[in-house]
Structures are given as structure tokens and as C-alpha cells.
Amino acid sequence: MELLPQAIVDGLLIGGIYITIAIGFSLAYGVMHIIDFAVGEWIMLGAFLGFYLHKGTGIDPFILLPVVFLVFFGVGYIFQPLIHRVLSGKRGNPVLMGLVFTFGLALMFRGIALTAFGFYTHSIPAKFFQGSLFFQFGNFFVTIPMIRLAGLIYALSITAILHYLLKNTDFGLAVRALAQHKESAGLMGVNAKKTGSYVYGIYVGISAMTGVIIGSIFSINAQMGADYTVFAFFVVVLAGMGYLAGVPWAAFLLGLVQSFFLIYLSPSYTLLAVFGILYVILLISPKGLFAKGV
């Protein structure tokens, strides 16, 4: 029982990171109906850009976030027309084509990263957030590492910014219109191609920034992508694919599942539980916990 508050706090702190892993992915699915197998690889590439920028300049990784975002926004913006081409046109099975295409991209990125960065594991030290907060209430002890708290705050602020962007700007209106009905949005003057490019750029940018955060909380290596793809899929399916408001709850749930398995059961059962829950949720309610997916 003494560990219960710690388990909950750990779960929430980890869950915050899962929000930013999944929220861009969910946005891209909602607008473009692409299931991006490369989501983990974007995270990995962003992490390495952050690592080398930090190594080269010595600037704190949290200050480098906007740079990483801008670079990968550009990369996503350039890649989107290709994906648009794969998903549209006279192709029998756009879902499969999208999956296979991004799977190919994922393999390619992993190969390039292994060639360029090697097999070593690195971490990105953040000087601003060191040490940890320590609380004690009677018998209960809770430790909150500053860096994880910073990660949670980062995730919540990204979520807030995205929320503002989608609900209060013309661009957000266009994105929501595209997600609701592509043809009608086109008739109302929304440029699907251009808006799609921005959305994909935002998604890739957020994923890359999250990679930097992951690098300063945990560690990074060229093969880390696949794990985060799993987590992104889990959160997005649980939330309902394309339903952004569900993402934070699903992400916190994943964080809690992980921390409870880590503390109370054996960690080797964690992935079994993650995949088992994912499968059962899909069978019971394919549109997610809130039945609001597309």
C-alpha cells in the first residue's frame, strides 16, 4: 500500500509523454486517414537531431524544442504529397497502401539511423531540470523527478496549444471540416492538399519534439522507434482513432497500466497486458473507450 501513491504519480507522469506521442498521430489519422507505421521513427529521428544539436551547441534540450519542431515540420510538409498520392487515386486498397508505404518508410529510416548513428544508446541531459521533489504524508512517500514533471508540463502545454489551434483559428476550422467530410470541406474552399501538408507537418514536428523529451527522460538509440509505435497505436485505438479529446485519458491509462505492472507485477507481463487490452478493446468497442472514433 505504501507504494500506491507513487504508482499513480509515476503512471500520470509517464502518461503525459504518451499524450504527445499519440496526439499528432490521431490528428493525422482524423484528417488524412493514414495509419503511420513510422510514428516511432519520427520520434527517434527527432531525438537524434536534439542529441546532436545539444552536443554541438550545449544549449539545453528544452530550449532546442522549437528548432527541432521547425525542422521536422518542414520534413513532414515535404513528405505529405507522397502520402497523399499513395492514399488517393485509383488504388484498390488505400488503407493497405498507406500501411505498407509507411512501413517501408519506417524500415528505411531505421536503416539510415543505424548507419548514421550506430547502435549506441545515448541520453540528452537537461540541466534545467535536475533533482526531484519529495513529499511525505504519514506513511506515504512520493518522489517526483523534476525532468518528468517538465515532460508532463510540456505534454499538457502542447495539448493546450493544439486545442487552441483547432478550436479558435481558421486553420483549425479547416482541419476539423476536412476530418468531418473531405468533399464538402473542398466545396467550402478548404485546400485539402495544403491543409493536409500542414497537419502532417505538425504531427511529425510534435513527434520529433517528443523524441527529444524522451531522450532527456529515458534514453535514445536507433532502434527505439518500434516500441513507441506500439504505444502510439495503443493510445490512439483506446481513445478512438481520430478522436483527439480521448487521447489524454487513454494516454494516462496506458501510463497507469505500465506503472502498476512495473510495481505490483512482473514487468515482463506489461507488453502482454498492453496487447491483450488493445485486442479486447478493439473487439468490444472498435471506436475506442468513448465510442467516438472515425
Binding site: F101, L105, G111
Partner: peptide, 20 residues
Amino acid sequence: QVLYLIILGAVIALSVVFLP
């Protein structure tokens, strides 16, 4: 061997785009 991953990935992505 790492080059294999790159080439395989490129072949997949290109064949989806050009040979659907």
C-alpha cells in the same frame, strides 16, 4: 546489413507509389 533495411524500405515505398 543495415543497408539491406534501407534498400528494402525504399523498394517497398517506391513500389507502393509507382507499382500499386
